[in-house]
Amino acid sequence: MNTKIPATKNNKRLITILVCGVIFMFGFCYMLVPLYNIVCKQIGFNGKSANSATLVNPNMQVDTSRTIKVDFSTTMHGNLNFKFIPLQRHIEVHPGERKLIYFYAENKTGKDITVQAIPSITPNDAARFLKKTECFCFTQQYFFKGEKADMPVYFFIDPAVPKETKEMTLSYTLFDETEFIKKQKHFTKGRIDL
């Protein structure tokens, strides 16, 4: 067929621009991942604001006029044979007040295992105001066969939390991390071995 039109300079320029656009959009798709994490961190969606430490503002005032009930809940993902429970079902906390609570963990899988607790906070509208200074969920945790530990969480609720908020839930899902294990072997940070 000789119906082909030679690519003119004009065509070449346009094609180059469009191909660059396509490549950019492919890259943009991957950029959505960090973007999503940043947005989630800002709005507190799906625990993204609760998986890293926050600094406490030294001027933070405890607002004793309000009390917020914080529920704790745990979920074992898949068929993970772990005992993992909060030692208190719930506590009452004033905004701005730092609290320490414990979760109890026991490896019943019969083998050494690395686990990761993924935090999640509800309601979505208030999630970003629950902040942690220390938590076992910041890193993976290595458990020997049959090992037991108490896992502390230091947290506070930012006094800027919306007035309507009366209840919150801090929830952890415990995952078997064997497939996503990091290079270092043993993680025991942020826990009290029993």
């Binding site: 993902h77 898949g78 993924i118 979505n124 839930t169 899902t173």
Partner: peptide, 29 residues
């Protein structure tokens, strides 16, 4: 508090006006 163990499910009862996705690893209220 709605979550899932394996894949995404969705808890829906029309007469209660509740439909909430259950997402593994995260909790929805």
């Amino acid at each position: 508090l709605v979550t899932a163990d394996d894949v995404i499910h969705d808890w829906w009862v029309p007469e209660l006006g509740v439909k909430q996705d259950a997402i593994p690893g995260f909790i929805n209220e």
